[in-house]
Design a protein around this nucleic acid. Structure first.
Lengths: 205, 205
DNA sequence: GTCTATAATCAGATAGAC
DNA sequence: GTCTATCTGATTATAGAC
């Protein structure tokens, strides 16, 4: 009969969207807390409060759940990048993004994926949304890196790609959790310490 | 009737030791290649060329297999530290140990354990051999760090424990594999790059 | 779309003969 | 100690009613 008003379809879609958001949030937290391998689909279902079979109506596999969480993080990163003052120096913007990444991690909202899991990697590289987000972020950071090197703010002896990887690696830096476990420093101090070792190095200046 | 000569018992023990060495070597390589979660006990058995049940006669669990591999790596680290010229500067010795760690990793011989797996962590901290090795290495590196800071070679603004964690973290630094995957740089160059970002930092000097 | 119930598989661990 | 064969539990994924 297809006589359903447009408004009602839109409402149903909103509900659907809201539920998928809730799923992705739960996945995000579980990925940050336990990592991909230790996270079970049962836990996700329990955290969302729905049956496991219902999860599979939204996402076809565990890998796709993780992928959706990664896409969301990429979007958040792009959103944050968009808030940075355009007239700031490239170096300051890079530092700001790294700081944002580490604060996300300390807040327990940075999903951690094993870089070795092949089925997961396959899903990620096959995801247009994820790869597009990754590319855009990389392009922006890459441009800042080259600009900073041209200004003499970042060491030009390091290839830009190596600088980019070094920045990305802060998202899974175990030093943050080690220092947090020690309980001796608060989050702000930990962020400053790692920022300092990353940009200034361990050697005295 | 317990009349076996001492020589024969010793020989049997040697065989046992050799087999356990082979097991640990296989575990070490598999841990480096796939990580703890992806490594299966069946694979270990297949790599060694014995039945899975036989493995469990030597090691009571998968966690104990990984622990034995970690103990072996710690021993290798201590052996390497012992070869360093005692009259070298603390900073040079620290750099040498980090270089050794990264070369081990690039050679595919650095076991990678998920820092989040709790049953594995429990086994590790319960292992006297592992904890002793870890403590000794940490003590030596820690002393060098403090000496280097006293000499003004390493930034005294960073707590020694944070420096130590930063050095340890090079053992699981994803930048190495990323750069290796790119295929643009050979192993020696990769080591120099990461050494440089670690000690000199990203900022120009 | 959501549920309960179940399939299907895989992996860690063990039994018991030799 | 080593083997074959098996158990056991956990986990991903699906069937089918509503």
């Amino acid at each position: 009969m297809k006589s359903t008003p447009v408004v009602k379809v839109s409402f149903k879609q909103q509900m659907l969207q809201a539920r998928e958001d809730a799923i992705i949030r739960a996945v995000n937290l579980l990925l940050a807390e336990k990592g991909f391998d230790a996270m079970t689909v049962d836990e996700v279902a329990a955290a969302v409060g729905i049956a496991k079979a219902s999860l599979y109506k939204h996402f076809p596999s565990k890998e796709d759940l993780a992928c959706a969480a990664m896409v969301r993080v990429m979007q958040r990163a792009q959103d944050y990048i968009g808030t940075l003052p355009q007239d700031d120096t490239p170096l300051n913007k890079l530092r700001a993004v790294v700081r944002w990444t580490m604060e996300l991690k300390l807040a327990g909202e940075m999903p951690s994926l094993p870089s070795q899991n092949s089925s997961l990697r396959a899903t990620l590289v096959a995801s247009r949304d994820y790869m597009d987000g990754l590319m855009e972020v990389s392009d922006e950071l890459g441009a800042w890196i080259e600009a900073a090197q041209a200004q003499g703010a970042i060491n030009s002896g390091i290839p830009a790609i190596a600088v980019l990887y070094t920045l990305y690696a802060r998202a899974c830096d175990p030093v943050l959790e080690f220092l947090k476990m020690g309980g001796q420093y608060d989050d702000a101090r930990i962020v400053e310490l790692v920022l300092s070792t990353c940009f200034d190095g361990l050697n005295a200046r």
